[in-house]
């Protein structure tokens, strides 16, 4: 479980970085953001933006009113990684339009999360599953 203000702060930082990527057209900056996404998806406790939030802000804001599970955060970060990775490849391999479009998707998603508290993953995930998926087996306890 995590303080939901952490991921929202991370989304705001991500949006700023993606704006910088789009303004400069820098593939290396896109790569840096892709690494941040990958780290946070793999190990949310080690996410660089989350560390900034916890060391600089959390203590000044007081305890959170509610906690949220980490699974959605990791899912969103994994989706963000795909966009940032495509943006990196686009810029570094000479297709800046591809880079700009992929970076814009990441920017739009981060912006919606930061400003509106809206998770695009929630919005699209079920539509995607109902179009493609068969019902998943319900989760059962291991033991």
């Amino acid at each position: 479980m995590t303080d939901p203000r952490g991921p929202r702060f991370a989304a705001a930082l991500t949006a700023l970085v993606m704006v910088a990527v789009l303004v400069t057209g820098s593939g290396w900056l896109a790569l840096a953001q892709a690494v941040v996404f990958a780290l946070t998806a793999a190990q949310p406790r080690l996410g660089p933006y989350g560390l900034v939030y916890r060391t600089l802000l959390a203590s000044r804001l007081g305890p959170p009113a509610e906690l949220e599970p980490l699974a959605p955060v990791r899912f969103a970060q994994a989706v963000g990684f795909v966009f940032a990775a495509v943006a990196t490849l686009g810029y570094l391999l000479g297709s800046p339009l591809t880079g700009a479009i992929a970076a814009s998707f990441a920017l739009a998603a981060a912006f919606l999360n930061a400003v509106f508290g809206l998770c695009l993953g929630c919005e699209l995930f079920l539509a995607y599953r109902r179009l493609t998926g068969r019902p998943l087996a319900a989760r059962v306890p291991v033991s």
């Binding site: 704006v19 400069t24 700009a100 479009i101 814009s104 920017l107």
Partner: peptide, 11 residues
């Protein structure tokens, strides 16, 4: 990068 500015602005 003008392309980036326009695409990002639209987004």
């Amino acid at each position: 990068d003008m392309t980036g500015l326009i695409v990002g602005g639209v987004a």
